[in-house]
Design a binder for these strands. Structure first.
Lengths: 137, 137
DNA sequence: ATATTTGCAAATAATTTGCAGTCGA
DNA sequence: TCGACTGCAAATTATTTGCAAATAT
C-alpha cells in the first residue's frame, strides 16, 4: 500500500490522515510481530526525529477507533498492537518471546465456541507454550 | 475447601502455606469474577488489617508458579486472576464490564486450533462483545 | 478559519525492588 | 535455628492528561 492509498483508507474511516497516523499504521502493516507502543516509538523517532510517545498513543487510539488496528492482550506488562483485524490466533513462546500469528482451518470453529445469546464482536484465541523452533533443541 | 485442606494443597505443590497465600487463594476460589490484585488487596485488608500489596503480588506469583492460579489478560490496564486452571473461555461484556466464564462443548476443539509442532501449555479463548443480559435491552 | 492534532512535561496507576524484621518447618 | 516470606517505602514503567503551538481541511 502506498501513501496515497493509506490516506484514502484513513479518510474513508473518518479519521484525519495525518503523517503520524500514516507512519504508525504503515509500521504496523509492515511489522506483523505485534510491536508495543514503545517499539513503534523507538522505530519511528529514527525516521521522523520529532515524534512523541503521546502521539503514538493518540494515533493508535484513533486507528483502533477506526477499526484498522487491534489491541492484543498478549503480554502482562504492555499492550501489543496488530494491523490484522480479522479473527486469527496468537501463540506466545515462553522461550523466545515471539508472538506467532496463525489462521484457523475453519473460522466458524471459533464462533462456535461463543456461548449462545452472547453477541461476539471480537474473538481471540491465545496459546502460551514452546514454539516449533525452540522445541527442536 | 477448609483451611487444613488448603494447607495441604499448597504444601503438595511445594510452596509454604502461609496465612497470606491461603487467604489469597481462598479469595480467588470464592470469587470467580476474576478480581484484580487491587480488588483482592482491598478485600483482604478488611479482614486482616496488616496485609500489603507487595504480599498480594508475591502470593499470586507463588500460586501461579505452583500452577494453582492463572493470570488472565482480560483488561488492558490491569491483570486479572483466576483459580480455575483448566481450559475455559472468557467473555468480556463491553456494556456491564463483567467477565463470564464458559466451558467448551468439546475441550479438544481448542487444542485442535493450535498449530502443528507448537507445544501448548495454556490455551485461552477470549471474546469481547455484548452479553446475554445487556443485549435484552 | 477553525477545529483537530501534536508534543512536551507533569501526573497517574500498576507493579517491582531493596531491605529489615518476622514467620514457618 | 535458618532460610523463606512479609511489609514498608521508594523506584520503575506503561499510559494518560493539560495545554500551547502546529496542522489539516
Amino acid at each position: 500500500m502506498n501513501d496515497s492509498e493509506l490516506i484514502s483508507v484513513l479518510s474513508r474511516r473518518g479519521i484525519r490522515p495525518t503523517q503520524q497516523r500514516i507512519a504508525v499504521y504503515k509500521y504496523l502493516l509492515t511489522h506483523p510481530e505485534h510491536p508495543s507502543a514503545d517499539t513503534i516509538y523507538r522505530a519511528l523517532v529514527e525516521e521522523y526525529p520529532v515524534f512523541s510517545r503521546t502521539t503514538i498513543y493518540n494515533s493508535l487510539g484513533a486507528l483502533i477507533e477506526a477499526g484498522l488496528v487491534r489491541q492484543v492482550n498478549i503480554c502482562a506488562d504492555e499492550q501489543r498492537f496488530d494491523a490484522t483485524v480479522t479473527d486469527h490466533g496468537h501463540f506466545f513462546c515462553k522461550e523466545c518471546g515471539k508472538v506467532y500469528d496463525f489462521g484457523f482451518d475453519s473460522p466458524a470453529m471459533v464462533s462456535r465456541l461463543c456461548p449462545r445469546g452472547f453477541i461476539k464482536e471480537q474473538g481471540d484465541v491465545f496459546f502460551t507454550g514452546i514454539c516449533k523452533h525452540c522445541y527442536s533443541f
